[in-house]
């Protein structure tokens, strides 16, 4: 009953979002740009939520997957590899998701096998930084520090960006939603609660952890690909910066870790905070953003989604 209602509401919200381009002028409205960016953040935050929130493996290497996704798109396009049109081409985008998956499996198996908790977090951070150096030192293949330049003349309107972003945000949320409701999700949560006991109950811990890590990498890579289409100039400082790890963690925890709506709320809220502080407190926008993060975490440790639990319990 409850489930049906919430699904109905979700569908309505999604339809409302999908109709925004018919109401607002996509190419003139800053609000639409805000939504586009928020969708990107929802996608990567949801990906992190699966790994960090549901499986309990705090990964600090998301920027590597994001950057790899963006670079894959750029390299496929510029080297004319798949001959499929490239600009918003599903084949290119899916490949941009799959390349990070390969990386996730290669580094995930040893890291997830050997390292736990904070060690895993720092290990992934190290991997991310190494990937960044490899791209900076990649010579003409990655364009080194200058990066790669895509032909920006193909741009016509923000509309495809908006809808693709919306699709990715929904896609990642739905993927995570169904994953955690399946047997896999059960296993993942068992791992988060107690790895040893999960293993003793016959859960192949490593397999599931790597699986979650790879799915997270896939979703992040997709978002990276979309961002590459938006940015056109792909360089290490833009797509491999640590913010692409820091922001999803921030948004996920602010929204509510290990809750399906947590990343959605967190991404919209934090992105809104960044946008508004940027407009109204230009000189000191990081102070305001930092202050807000501290306040939310200090007084609502369950994240924004926990806010209603607090109010409910007071009643």
């Amino acid at each position: 009953m409850e489930d049906k209602r919430s699904i109905l509401i979700s569908v309505l919200v999604v339809i409302a979002f999908a109709c925004v381009p018919f109401v607002l002028d996509v190419d003139k409205s800053y609000f639409v740009f805000f939504l586009f960016l928020s969708f990107c953040y929802v996608t990567i935050t949801q990906a992190w939520n699966l790994v960090g929130g549901y499986t309990g493996q705090i990964s600090l290497g998301q920027h590597a997957f994001f950057g790899l996704g963006a670079y894959t798109t750029a390299i496929i396009w510029l080297r004319d590899i798949t001959k499929t049109g490239y600009f918003f081409d599903p084949v290119t985008m899916i490949l941009s998701g799959l390349v990070p998956v390969v990386l996730a499996i290669i580094v995930g198996i040893p890291l997830l096998h050997r390292l736990k908790g904070d060690y895993f977090a720092i290990g992934t951070l190290g991997v991310g930084e190494i990937i960044k150096v490899l791209f900076v030192k990649g010579g003409s293949f990655t364009g080194a520090s200058d990066g790669l330049h895509l032909p920006s003349t193909v741009f016509e309107s923000m509309k495809p960006y908006y809808w693709t972003g919306l699709f990715l945000a929904i896609f990642s949320t739905v993927v995570v939603y169904f994953l955690i409701r399946s047997r896999i999700g059960l296993a993942l949560r068992a791992i988060r609660e107690d790895e040893t006991s999960a293993a003793s109950h016959g859960v192949h811990v490593l397999k599931y952890k790597v699986f979650a890590f790879a799915v997270g990498a896939f979703l992040t890579g997709l978002a990276g690909s979309l961002y590459a289409y938006y940015l056109f100039h792909i360089n290490p400082d833009a797509v491999l910066k640590l913010n692409w790890t820091l922001y999803p963690v921030l948004m996920c925890v602010i929204g509510g870790t290990g809750r399906i709506m947590g990343p959605v709320i967190g991404a919209f809220f934090m992105n809104g905070v960044f946008f508004l502080t940027d407009i109204y407190f230009v000189e000191i926008n990081p102070i305001m953003a930092g202050l807000l993060i501290i306040i939310v975490m200090r007084f609502m440790p369950g994240g924004l989604i926990g806010l209603k639990d607090m109010i409910m319990s007071r009643k």
């Binding site: 489930d3 919430s6 919200v13 609000f31 805000f34 709320i265 919209f268 809220f269 989604i305 409910m312």
Partner: peptide
């Protein structure tokens, strides 16, 4: 219970942000 409430909160926040942004979307 939790889910609908969560969605309501979600809507509420989106509403706030949209109000802020739309109202200052430059006239």
């Amino acid at each position: 219970m939790t889910k609908t409430k969560g969605l309501k909160w979600c809507l509420f926040f989106i509403l706030i942000v949209s109000l802020c942004l739309i109202s200052f979307n430059g006239v």
